[in-house]
Design a protein around this nucleic acid. Structure first.
Length: 561
RNA sequence: GCCCCCGUAGCUCAGUGGAUAGAGCGCAGGCCUCCGAAGCCUGAAGCAGCGGUUCGAGUCCGCUCGGGGGUACCA
């Protein structure tokens, strides 16, 4: 149980007693606790009395007082007070706070960990960039995001699979194959132009060259479209190999690389369509197969023209659409594979697809609460002095690997994780290089390394944190550190619901900042052996907490830097 | 046109409807005979605008302005 949950429980009990003793009518106001901005207001506060004032038709201060008077005594709490205009403030008992140092240090890598999701199998699907080129910084945003979400869910006991969905079929992939074929022909001196919808970048030439190295001119006499078809698996293999290599470099280990074409070759796609058809959700029109249901929006007024109703799942040429395949893929994961939940980390351009899926999956009997999408906004980058959107199709992008090589894994991850997913992110490569040494990740890592250094100093003096008496920790500066460590379990519990993992970076900076301030003003290893031991135990708890956060973020926690 | 996301300090970003809006970079100034100055301390500087809901709004609602995305038999 987190400290916040402890306090919340005490306050809720008090409210329930007040309500029953004073005959208050039931209310749907829930009692939430928060951390007051001003430490003078204590460690926790609730504004429930203010919210109850109207339904109970009583002054907030009277309600607050009634609650305060009924809070059961607890060793963790030193004072419960009422403040204008109707807050109930709770101050933690300093001795109890100090004792938590021991609890934290003993918990070790279990600190903050829960079993809340034990027994549930959850897939986190992320990156899943079109396999038509190398991973760019744009796709890469989903990398750390999905990876940290996966780590967080595992931290709460879930059995987590990290999955990369390789979308190796479809129109874009056809164009990819065509582009390779054109470059292949050029390799042997043929004068042939890349079609306008081809992929223009040089990596296609690299793939063609590798193909030429392997097979020589063996395929030269085939028609272009047959070459295109033939070269796709080779190209995909190259791209997937690159994606594996680069994501590993970014610190991500996918458990499953799911190849989309297996959905089709296994017959699972057709089976899924059959099931939809049986339930009456498919209609044939203009040679294509459409998904339609009463929930599909009917907006006929678009641009003054009538809109076709429904969405195509199989094109008139027989090829499944992305939507059709994704319906089958989700069914595969949630029914066939028996996953309890699927979490998709998708880029902002999938918002309409998301709407379609929200309507299509329930048609198959797959409820909303079994899958969830974390949508992240685009990463733009500065190209020739102008902010631009990245795209493999336009040939304008910044490669993830170039950034990784320039600023390193830790700084890259920390940068991409700092802002919330629904905020657009701009990446200036020059600025990133310039500021790489100023990246806040070093501020956090430095705190961790500094503590390691303290322990090196201590061991030279034969001091350790063993049998420390943490009750000697009574200074406000010391206890402030502990108080902040105690927020870590609260944060990760909250993130279990919100998945707003960027908050971990903010927390890491806060805790590091508190430690740096403490370090400046307080000697850990000093003349007083008992006090030194207690403080060693304290900074051990701080270091441990920092390490927990950094580990979740997938950022290294160095002992020296 | 319609739909979604976002506008917070010069820059990059935090900020669960609460009590005096924070951090890093940059800028001005100060701090190493003492566990690591990749640090600390001080200062200047901000909620795009207008209404509304609320005891209380950066946070919720509406409109305006600005940025991004979507509205395919692309993915």
């Amino acid at each position: 149980m987190t400290t916040a949950e402890l306090i919340q429980g005490l306050l809720r009990d008090a409210l329930a007693r007040a309500a029953s003793e004073l005959g208050w009518p039931a209310s749907d106001a829930t009692l939430e606790v928060e951390h007051p901005a001003d430490p003078a207001h204590g460690d926790y506060a609730t504004s429930v009395a203010l919210k109850l004032a109207r339904p109970l038709r009583k002054p907030p201060l009277e309600i607050a007082t009634a609650i305060r008077d009924r809070v059961a005594p607890h060793e963790a709490v030193s004072a419960v007070t009422v403040a204008k205009p109707g807050f109930v403030n709770v101050a933690l008992n300093d001795a109890w706070v100090a004792a938590q140092v021991e609890v934290i240090a003993r918990a070790g890598t279990d600190f903050g960990r829960t079993k809340a999701l034990a027994g549930s199998r959850i897939q986190v699907e992320f990156v899943s960039a079109n396999p038509t080129g190398p991973v760019t910084v744009a796709n890469a945003r989903g990398g750390p995001l999905g990876d940290v979400i996966a780590s967080l869910l595992a931290f709460h006991g879930a059995d987590v699979q990290r999955e990369y969905y390789v979308e190796d079929t479809g129109t874009q992939v056809d164009r990819f194959g065509m582009s390779i074929a054109v470059r292949y022909r050029q390799l042997f001196g043929e004068e042939i132009e890349l079609p306008p919808d081809g992929y223009p970048s040089d990596y296609i030439k690299d793939i063609a060259r590798l193909l030429g190295d392997r097979d020589g001119d063996a395929h030269l006499r085939l028609p272009l479209d047959e070459q295109a078809k033939l070269f796709v698996p080779f190209g995909i293999e190259w791209v997937v190999g690159e994606a594996k290599r680069v994501t590993v470099k970014l610190g991500i280990a996918f458990d499953v690389w799911f190849m989309q074409h297996t959905l089709l070759t296994s017959g699972y796609f057709d089976e899924t369509m059959t099931k939809l058809r049986e339930k009456g959700y498919l209609v044939e029109r203009d040679g294509a197969v459409w998904f339609d249901s009463p929930d599909v929006p009917r907006d006929k007024a678009r641009d003054g023209e009538d809109k076709e109703e429904g969405w195509v799942v199989v094109r008139s040429n027989g090829d499944p659409t992305y939507l059709g395949k994704d319906i089958a893929y989700h069914r595969l994961c949630l029914e066939q594979r028996g996953l309890d939940r699927k979490i998709n980390v998708w880029g902002a351009n999938t918002q309409y697809h998301l709407l379609q899926m929200k309507i299509a999956l329930p048609a198959l009997g797959i409820p909303d609460d079994r899958w969830r999408v974390v949508l992240y906004q685009y990463v733009r980058f500065v190209h020739e002095g102008v902010l631009q959107r990245m795209g493999k199709r336009t040939g304008q992008f910044l490669l993830l690997e170039d950034v990784l090589d320039a600023v390193g894994k830790d700084a890259t991850r920390f940068f991409l994780l700092q802002s919330s997913a629904d905020r657009q992110l701009d990446f200036d490569f020059e600025l990133a290089l310039q500021q790489s040494n100023e990246n806040p990740v070093y501020y956090v890592q430095y705190a961790h390394a500094r503590i390691a250094s303290i322990f090196r100093t201590a061991s030279e003096k034969d001091l350790s944190s063993a049998d420390a008496d943490v009750s000697l920790l009574t200074d406000a500066a010391e206890l402030q550190l502990v108080r902040h460590c105690l927020r870590f379990p609260e944060l990760v519990a909250e993130l279990r619901e919100t998945l707003g993992v960027h908050a971990l970076t903010t927390y890491a900076m806060e805790l590091a900042g508190l430690f740096h301030g403490f370090y400046k003003g307080n000697r850990v290893v000093g003349d007083d052996a008992a006090r030194s031991k207690a403080r060693l135990r304290l900074v051990e708890a701080v270091q441990l907490t920092l390490r927990q956060v950094l580990t979740l973020l997938g950022v290294s926690a160095p002992d020296q830097m």
